[in-house]
Design a protein around this nucleic acid. Structure first.
Lengths: 177, 177
DNA sequence: TTGTGTATGTTATACTATAACATGTCAAGA
DNA sequence: TCTTGACATGTTATAGTATAACATACACAA
């Protein structure tokens, strides 16, 4: 587990600790702060329900279904009908503050808000953590493949399911025992 | 539009015509033939409902929702409850005869059965055609990104939405006019 | 023929998502 | 101040996607 002094070198800034144990609360507050700033810059409003939805995603640090988020929001006094959650989540996705994980029909907080990216997602099937990985080389390869067919890419989804370092170790121990 | 003599140089074998007009019926029967052989080799049964589901996907040459397939199956005298379609489609996916397109909650026939692959999908938002593109370089890049985080990839999904050559041309004309 | 495994059919239900409309909030301009 | 308009939230209702559970049928081997 790494510790923090001033700037958070955690999951938001350093991909190599995405799956490592760390003071995620710090990362979360760091991301929240950046979200505030971004919303101001982009001229959109990070209203209570939207802010809370983002906090929930950050607290969980994993992909959550819209109905899971809804339940949490309702518990906090917000509406408890599906559109409440979907609207907040759609807003976050539009503003680049959250991502939709197609494979899971779920949403996860963006750990790099403001860096205008479409990341590659690594989804751990053991602990359901989701990390964002370096996407540029993958996109480049994808672009080449598409170009060969005369296809013009607009948006793309790259998601990998597998085991994060910790879950892999645990499984290894289990198999060894 | 290319024509065929004996072996089909069409969409199954030549990615560069995936989006080109061609005698898809030929490709379809070619793929069906290979599916028959594969089923035999793998010791599984390509039963009437499974075979018909694959034919439907091949005829359409695009990603279809399970309920669309179900409707077609029911019209052909098979059961008309969701599990009928899902079971047939799941079977096809398991055997590598079809692919699931996460982004669309839909299924498409595999154009390269037996080549044990997890392709990259190019989904045209204009005509809804789906092509399978060269995946190796993309996977390699993805593997590198995952390795950097100590993540072990099991399965991955790579899907790009955009415009196929024909739809791009049509749109270009529209914009020019 | 009788069991065993697999496939199919059916009912019911769970999960995911959005359309449509009512109400509320807030700031800019008359 | 009032009004207006844009945006946000809340609610009802429904559409779309997927699976659990159980009953029936069929094929093949013992």
């Amino acid at each position: 587990m790494h510790d923090h002094s001033d700037a958070c070198p955690g999951c938001a800034a350093a991909p190599e600790v995405a799956f490592a144990r760390h003071d995620h609360a710090h990362c979360a507050s760091d991301v929240m702060g950046r979200a505030e700033v971004l919303a101001g810059v982009q001229g959109v409003r990070l209203t209570p329900v939207r802010r809370r939805a983002l906090e929930i995603l950050l607290e969980e640090h994993r992909a959550m279904g819209a109905y899971d988020v809804l339940q949490r929001l309702a518990a906090d006094g917000f509406g408890n009908q599906p559109p409440v959650a979907y609207r907040a989540l759609d807003f976050l996705v539009e503003q680049g503050l959250a991502h939709r994980i197609q494979r899971l029909n779920a949403f996860a907080a963006c750990m790099h808000p403001g860096e205008a990216h479409t990341p590659v997602f690594l989804i751990c099937t053991g602990c359901h953590a989701v990390a964002e990985a370096e996407a540029a080389p993958v996109r480049a390869a994808l672009g080449v493949a598409a170009e060969g067919l005369g296809f013009e890419i607009d948006r793309s989804t790259v998601e990998a399911a597998g085991l994060c370092p910790r879950c892999r170790d645990v499984q290894g121990e289990g198999a060894a025992a």
